[in-house]
Design a binder for these strands. Structure first.
Length: 474
RNA sequence: GGCCCGUUGGUGAAGUGGCUUAACACACAUGCCUUUCACGCAUGCAUUCACGAGUUCGAAUCUCGUACGGGUCACCA
């Protein structure tokens, strides 16, 4: 059996939203599940959208996600080059071959003529399809025009009758009437191929066996198949995947939130958690498990279980999965995703390294992403504590003033500032003030931290330091 | 507007004609535990699978229609 090969084919725009990433993950998993190859190909046929450094960005993203590229611009394989702008002569050659075979033709129509046609179609409220104006030019006419330096494109000749059908691995049978297919452009007048054409040529030349892509291509796949047929090539297996939507139910974009992998990463989400979460968006295993290592995913990924309907990117569930991974982190890795955010938000110059380590580690079980450390620890950095209504209400209960007074004295009397002694101070307060449980801990916690939730109280008090604590208890 | 695809709770989803009085997970709520909160644990949360018809002894699961949502109709990818 031939080796399974999949490809991730982004255009180098320097931005990757989680939907793209998810497609890459699916592609990678399908390849690796079958012991196959994962290829990175850069689709830069639109010269106007190219962004410098985008290839490095893509490499960084994939490598952070532990997606290993077998072949690509920086991983030379035998099917290169892997950047489409370096493959230009190839596309031209194949386009001309198609013309010779009678499956494509030169078209000299100007932008203005097409624009006029398009407008007319719009007025009549019908879909615009190129009218085949240049389809029947004679050899002499074509040569003449080319000699005169007229710009041209090469268009694919579509059948006008019948129905094209193909089977998609997740959507099943899809059929489209041929008369709806446009004589699409294969080679642009600047000599670059269109996306559609370059895709077919490269996928074939690179021996890609499974094409995984967004379902916006479901309708144009028959055009691809017609090209494969014209060349007499084997068609790949198609796997179209539904869209990932934002929380508003709309298409993900730079605008609606942190839809980009790098944004999430920079906020202290762990790549393995992001991958774990994304793979569960629109796919599910046949067990109830939810936490997967890459190895495990490779073992059990089955594209037939990809769902057809779009799914909403839910940051809350990502938070839960990410928190799960954070709990397992060792301190060094935890520091890496938290300390930079602390430094950015607060002045840490007078804090010792030990102090910072202690701070981060008592919050390990309390945060779901790195940057969250900032908001939960602000009680350590601000001078004045402001109580919310819930806290205020609690503090109005009887006897609380006394509890605080007793505790104040206990703290004052501590000589050696250790967690153990602080704990003793709490115990002594329990005895002397005659309060226990919630009525003991909560007033102290609120007074000292301004919050009703947090890590262990003695730890918190220890980190705050004696002066600050006394000050707040006053 | 034509065509294509989709529709199970707030979210991700399982489910492919009877074992489903619809799993599991997130979120939410309540309780237990920890002499506090959180963590953890337990329980609750869709009389119903967009809606309407049909097929069938039996339908979330099959068929048709309607509604809604999305996609697509570029010398963009």
């Amino acid at each position: 059996m031939e080796k399974v090969r999949t490809r991730f084919a982004p255009s180098p725009t320097g931005y990757m939203h989680v939907g793209n990433l998810r497609t890459a993950i699916f592609e990678y998993l399908i390849a690796k599940h079958n012991d196959g190859d994962f290829v990175l190909r850069i689709e830069d046929t639109d010269q106007t959208r190219k962004v410098d450094g985008a290839i490095d960005f893509i490499y960084d993203t994939l490598s952070l996600c532990n997606i290993k590229i077998d072949e690509g611009p920086n991983n030379k394989g035998k099917y290169g080059p892997y950047i489409q702008s370096e493959r230009l002569p190839l596309y031209k050659k194949y386009a001309e071959e198609l013309v010779e075979k009678g499956c494509a033709y030169y078209c000299f129509c100007t932008e203005e003529r097409l624009e006029k046609l398009r407008k007319e179609a719009e007025e009549k409220k019908i879909a615009f399809l190129y009218d085949g104006h240049c389809k029947n030019l004679t050899k002499e006419e074509i040569d003449e025009k080319i000699k005169n330096g007229e710009k041209y494109v090469i268009r694919q000749k579509m059948p006008k009758e019948g129905v094209s059908e193909y089977t998609d691995l997740v959507y099943g049978k899809i059929s489209v009437e041929n008369k709806l297919l446009e004589d699409q452009i294969l080679l642009k007048s600047d000599g670059y191929p269109t996306y559609n054409f370059a895709n077919v040529i490269d996928d074939h030349l690179m021996n890609i066996t499974h094409v995984i892509r967004g379902n916006e291509y479901i309708m144009s796949t028959p055009k691809y198949n017609l090209l494969y047929d014209a060349f007499g090539w084997d068609k790949p297996t198609y796997i179209h995947v539904s869209m990932v939507l934002g929380e508003d139910g709309q298409k993900l974009s730079k605008r609606n939130g942190d839809a980009s992998f790098m944004d999430l990463y920079n906020d202290g989400y762990l790549p393995e958690a992001i991958v774990n979460y994304l793979v569960m968006l629109g796919w599910s295993p046949d067990t109830n498990e939810e936490i997967f290592s890459m190895e495990k995913l490779i073992k059990l990924f089955d594209p037939k279980r990809i769902s057809k309907s779009p799914s909403v990117f839910d940051i809350k569930k990502l938070n839960w999965i990410n928190a799960h991974y954070i709990k397992k982190l060792d301190l060094d890795d935890l520091l890496k995703i938290t300390v930079p955010h602390l430094k950015e938000a607060y002045n840490l110059e007078d804090k010792s390294e030990e102090w910072i380590k202690e701070l981060v580690s008592i919050y390990q079980d309390h945060i779901s992403y790195g940057k969250e450390i900032v908001e939960v620890t602000d009680l350590f950095f601000k001078d004045k504590i402001k109580l919310n209504d819930e806290c205020k209400e609690f503090m109005e209960a009887d006897g609380i003033g006394n509890t605080i007074d007793v505790f104040y004295k206990e703290i004052e009397n501590i000589n050696e500032w250790t967690v153990e002694n602080i704990n003793n101070a709490i115990m002594n307060t329990k005895e002397k003030a005659g309060v226990k449980g919630k009525m003991l801990y909560m007033p102290i916690r609120i007074k000292v931290s301004g919050q009703m939730h947090g890590p262990e109280l003695p730890d918190t008090i220890h980190l705050l330091g004696k002066d600050v604590v006394l000050n707040r208890l006053k």
